[in-house]
Structures are given as structure tokens and as C-alpha cells.
């Protein structure tokens, strides 16, 4: 059987998804038996122009991680879509915008000001911020455009499959790669993951009635190892998040932050999480409710940790 032609690429990402792909360990050898890797900037030296020269649909599968934050990333996403028969969105950043997507609470100007002018460690007397082009004696130099709004991969190009996680767990990655090697990919549009409704369903903690008078950030409390974290006032996204990871974070005594994306049937993960959190507040007195809510320092960043660009509002309106 002819080998599968596989491309792997990163856009606005942290590199963690590459680590996750490498972490499949010796299974990587099985992958390499079945697939020729034609493009993978982290591991092999293939240039952009080589990819440009590849005929349309000559790549069988592209695993794409990272969100779309710049014009260069958008260009690469479109090019790889054209060159690939199957486009797989890999990891929360590509799937829903992920951590870089939280930049959608701001715009380019605010982000540049913060990063290049205001941070305490910055020394930038001339107030230089990235420009898309500059004339120098040797000619014109250019940089990609930094967008105001981060987009997910499915908001940018047509995507065939989603592999959830930040980064996807080894077993999730292998589920997809094995299906790929055996040519048994599920119907287009599927999320490739172990089929578990919510993280709570995988969570070994004991669950009782949830009633909370105070919310804590993880560093403010040493949580009980056995009891549901939400019951202890720690914002745990397990109720609003699709299962499949095996409740990894909960086993490490940390709350779920939502990386596997919304539970099936829910479009807006953050709104769902918010609703679950509000419902456990133990008070019928508006003033007390207000003071309990005060404990939640950053609702948008907590409820939409990985999914802001994919949410109904997609971004904040900034004036």
C-alpha cells in the first residue's frame, strides 16, 4: 500500500501540540511505517517554497495546530487546505482559538501597547511597534499583519476533523492516528475522541449537592483530593466540557479548565459553564450573591479559557 503523505503545521501555538505528537513515543515508528512526513517545521527541514510547489491535494492529511492570529498563518492555513485531501484541526488553539484567543478581549493596538510599551521589563524609548513593512537601504522588509481578532482554524478554512485537547492527550492523538493509518476515519465533521459526555463522567471524585458560599482560585486553597472541586468552590469546567481526556487534571488535584471543548449539543461553552457556576451559589440575598460573585476575578477568561473566538460573541467590543 502506498504510504500516506502527512503534513504537520503550527500557527499561533505554544509548541505543546508538537510535544504531544512526539509523545506518542514508539508509536511514532508505527506512524512513520505508514506515512511519509512531507512537511513538519519542528522536525524536518522542508521549506515553505517546497510546500508551495506541491500540487493541489497531493498531501493526504494535514494535522494543523494553533490559532489564526496573523496574515501569514491565514495564508498557510489556506495553502495547506488546498494541498491536502484531509484537514485535521489539532488542539484547542486550532479548534476554538485556545489561549491565544483570549486576545479577543483586546485589539491589536491594546496588545501592542501592552507588549511593546507598557510592560515593566520593556525598554523601548522610541516606542517602536511591529509594522508590516519598512524601507531599508537593502530594500523593503516586511512582516505579516497582526490581526485584531484571533480566529479558529474552522473559521478560516474548511476542516474535516477535530482532535480536542490542550494539548490532545496521547490516547486521543493515537485514536486519530490509528484511524488514519488503518484508513478508518469517521464521517467528515467528527470530533475524534473517546466518547464520554462530560469530564465529570470520568471524574473519580465524590459528588454531592453543590452549594457554595465562596469561590477560590486554585492557589488560595488546598483542595480535598476526593471531593468534587466545584463543591469546594473551585471553578471546575468539567460540567461544561466534553470528556475523553480521562479527567486528567482532576487526578492531579487541579480543576478542569475546559480544553476538550464544549459538551455535545452546546454551542457556547462559556455560557454553559457560567450557568453551572451561578446555579451553585448558596444564597437568595442579592447583596450576598454580589459578594460571592466578587470572588470570581476574571469570568470571561475563566469561562472561555479556550473557546473565546468560537463563542457566540467571538470577541469583545473595545472602544
Amino acid at each position: 500500500m502506498a504510504k500516506i503523505k502527512l503534513a504537520l503545521y503550527w500557527a499561533s501555538s505554544c509548541g505543546g501540540c508538537e510535544i504531544a505528537q512526539l509523545q506518542i513515543g514508539e508509536k511514532l515508528l508505527k506512524l512513520i511505517d505508514a506515512a511519509d512526513i512531507v512537511f513538519w517545521p519542528v522536525a524536518i527541514d522542508v521549506k515553505y517554497k517546497d510546500v508551495e510547489a506541491m500540487p493541489e491535494k497531493s498531501i493526504d492529511v494535514c494535522l494543523f495546530n494553533g490559532a489564526i492570529r496573523t496574515s501569514e498563518q491565514e495564508h498557510m492555513a489556506k495553502m495547506l487546505r488546498d494541498k491536502s485531501k484531509t484537514m485535521i484541526s489539532y488542539g484547542a488553539c486550532a479548534n476554538y482559538g485556545g489561549i491565544p484567543g483570549l486576545g479577543n478581549l483586546y485589539n491589536r493596538e491594546m496588545i501592542f501597547n501592552r507588549a511593546y510599551l507598557e510592560t515593566q521589563s520593556t525598554d523601548n524609548e522610541k516606542g517602536v511597534t511591529p509594522q508590516t513593512s519598512i524601507d531599508v537601504p537593502e530594500g523593503k522588509l516586511s512582516l505579516p499583519e497582526f490581526f485584531d481578532t484571533v480566529r479558529s482554524l474552522p473559521q478560516t478554512v474548511d476542516v474535516d476533523y477535530i482532535i480536542p485537547g490542550c494539548p490532545p492527550e496521547e490516547k486521543t492523538t493515537w485514536l486519530a492516528l490509528e484511524a488514519l493509518i488503518q484508513n478508518k476515519l469517521p464521517p467528515k465533521g467528527s470530533i475524534i475522541s473517546h466518547n464520554v459526555k462530560a469530564v465529570c463522567d470520568d471524574c473519580p471524585r465524590t459528588k454531592n449537592e453543590k452549594k457554595v458560599k465562596k469561590f477560590y482560585r486554585p492557589f488560595e486553597i488546598e483542595p480535598d483530593q476526593e471531593v468534587c472541586l466545584l463543591e469546594q468552590g473551585i471553578l471546575c469546567a468539567g460540567v461544561a466540557t466534553a470528556g475523553g481526556c480521562g479527567a486528567m487534571c482532576l487526578k492531579a488535584n487541579m480543576p478542569c479548565t475546559g480544553c476538550y471543548g464544549p459538551v455535545k449539543g452546546v454551542t457556547d461553552q462559556g455560557a454553559h459553564f457560567l450557568s453551572a457556576v451561578a446555579s451553585i451559589i448558596d444564597s437568595t440575598d442579592p447583596e450576598e450573591i454580589a459578594s460571592i460573585i466578587d470572588d470570581i476575578a476574571d469570568p470571561a477568561g475563566t469561562f472561555y479559557r479556550y473557546s473565546l473566538p468560537d463563542s457566540l460573541l467571538r470577541r469583545a467590543k473595545v472602544s
Binding site: G270, L274, I289, I293, F303, A316, V318, S319
Partner: peptide
């Protein structure tokens, strides 16, 4: 329930402008 939900929602929506 509504009484608990709406103030939290408002606080979050403020972050959305």
C-alpha cells in the same frame, strides 16, 4: 437561580464591552 445568574453574566459581559 435567575437572581444568581444575571449578576455573574453582567459582570462577564462587561469584559465583552
Amino acid at each position: 437561580k435567575t437572581m444568581r445568574r444575571v449578576p455573574l453574566l453582567k459582570k462577564m459581559l462587561k469584559q465583552f464591552g
